[in-house]
Design a protein around this nucleic acid. Sequence first.
DNA 1: TTTAATATTTAGGTTTGCCTAAAAAATAAT
DNA 2: ATTATTTTTTAGGCAAACCTAAATATTAAA
Lengths: 219, 219
Amino acid sequence: MYTFTEENYLKAIHFLSQGSEKGATTNAIAERLETKAASVSDMLKKLSDKDLLIYKKYQGVKLTAKGKEIAIKTVRKHRLWEVFLVDKLGFGWEEVHEVAEQLEHIQSVKLTDRLDSYLGNPKYDPHGDPIPDDAGNFPKRTETTLEECEINSEVIIRGVKDTSPEFLRYLEKLGIGLGAKLMVEEKEEFDGSMRVKINSTSDTSLSAAVCTNLFVKQL
Amino acid sequence: MYTFTEENYLKAIHFLSQGSEKGATTNAIAERLETKAASVSDMLKKLSDKDLLIYKKYQGVKLTAKGKEIAIKTVRKHRLWEVFLVDKLGFGWEEVHEVAEQLEHIQSVKLTDRLDSYLGNPKYDPHGDPIPDDAGNFPKRTETTLEECEINSEVIIRGVKDTSPEFLRYLEKLGIGLGAKLMVEEKEEFDGSMRVKINSTSDTSLSAAVCTNLFVKQL
DNA sequence: TTTAATATTTAGGTTTGCCTAAAAAATAAT
DNA sequence: ATTATTTTTTAGGCAAACCTAAATATTAAA
Ligand SMILES: [Mn+2]
Ligand SMILES: [Mn+2]
Ligand SMILES: [Mn+2]
Ligand SMILES: [Mn+2]
């Protein structure tokens, strides 16, 4: 029905529109898809002709209902496959994104739905991102990052904002995964770093770059 | 590494070269891939430039070692995914081919190998076709078809030559699946049809079209 | 407000994979 | 051995998705 490229564009635009009212800009889309702005302009025209998004020159773009639906279905598939790779095939959470980028384009509603129930209808993917159900509904994240937490607060890791293999491997090395318990012991004004106790054992300093990319739930 | 199209061409040529010494012809490839002969000529030139096959104008084509390797790896993925869909997700054997045609192009050696062991290193796919191991080795079929069997011989269904949904659904209706036991009771010279007893119960007449498409093992 | 910087679009071109129509080669029939 | 038929290739073109370079809009700075 839709090409890989179209689905990737819609997914990128959906992501970039989260929160912001103005929609996604050409440059932002180009950067996210690792392509050039000129190519994006081309594609926006085509997607607009297919009524998947609203495009007025020099303004940003916003997805139509149809465009949004396709984007969310693709996200659903992506995250379900990530769960499959981790839960069933024993992949690490830093290895799954690349493969899921391919698997998310497989077209078979039956496959997606069967996979969903085979996995036990998971609500979150290995990075803590919510998985849309077959109707496209899924919860908005409670966007608290570790950075925002006060001294002496205890938190549970619920997700990662940056899902790059580099970041995930570093977290692995620190012993920080989904569900890990963190105790904020000190906040350094100078560089935004935080001293935390991980799972009641090791004591570590986390840079601001790390703290801003960890979603947590206050205990 | 290789495009979907390239993999599909190599797979088709590999299939068409089974048995025949002369390699695959342009028209045969076009028919199998549901494309036009002119397009095939185009592509053969490109694949030849990439040393994936040997192409001399107006002669047929034969895969090089490299081309054969890619073809077999694609077949391996295709058949493993078919097993996954049937064994784990409960698909019918007539539904899996179409989806496997997409999944076979996912590029991740780790995924393929993990899937293989997750499935218990199956030797045959849901249609009885042998699955290449990770080195590309797999047994040649013992190509006995039901048609060749004598009266009073007892056989076990081991595979299907035609894997179209139409044929598979018809077999399903007849109660014939992999492992079914057939007893040849009569052979009709006139139209090549055979009267058989299926699993020691029902008595049915199978047309020649059915008999030539069933691989069996003599008991 | 005029100028400078940045963002976006247009123009023109490439590659991949496909098509139809026409030419050429190979094979079959007379 | 010609002639007819079939198979295959070539020629010319098209759509998707990308590119660079140049033009135009928008936004920020002076
Ligand atoms: Mn991912
Ligand atoms: Mn994820
Ligand atoms: Mn198949
Ligand atoms: Mn099969």
